[in-house]
């Protein structure tokens, strides 16, 4: 039962209603990412939008599952993340909220 209720992020996002915007609304200036010690964006994001690619030393930024909470903006120690709300009601649209 526990296993059934415990789900990975993809399964979580799957139940939500999105009207995905064609353009990524999350912009990261990556000049400090390599030296950023904890990379808090990679674990604070509730939908795993930020994944550190250690091999290429760059941050992979997903946005399709973004719930527009702003946690990434708040935790980035170098203030390098900008979240511009998607236009025309795009993005997440909660059916319950």
């Amino acid at each position: 039962m526990v296993a059934k209720l415990t789900r990975k992020i993809d399964e979580r996002i799957y139940v939500n209603r999105y009207n995905i915007h064609a353009k990524n609304h999350l912009v990261v200036v990556q000049d400090m990412c390599a030296v950023c010690k904890d990379k808090p964006c990679t674990f604070s994001c509730p939908v795993d939008n930020y994944v550190w690619d250690a091999e290429n030393k760059r941050l992979t930024v997903y946005y399709e599952g973004c719930v527009e909470c702003g946690a990434c903006v708040v935790v980035c120690p170098y203030h390098k993340i900008t979240l511009t709300y998607p236009p025309a009601g795009r993005g997440v649209n909660y059916r319950f909220g």
Binding site: L5, R7, G97
Partner: peptide, 26 residues
């Protein structure tokens, strides 16, 4: 959240439930 949902005090309250939405907010 997963740990909370599987806590012995909480899990029986949710048993058999179906997740309809996942949300986050500051």
């Amino acid at each position: 959240l997963d740990e909370f949902k599987s806590h012995p005090y909480v899990a029986p309250l949710l048993e058999g439930g179906k997740v309809k939405e996942y949300q986050a907010h500051l």
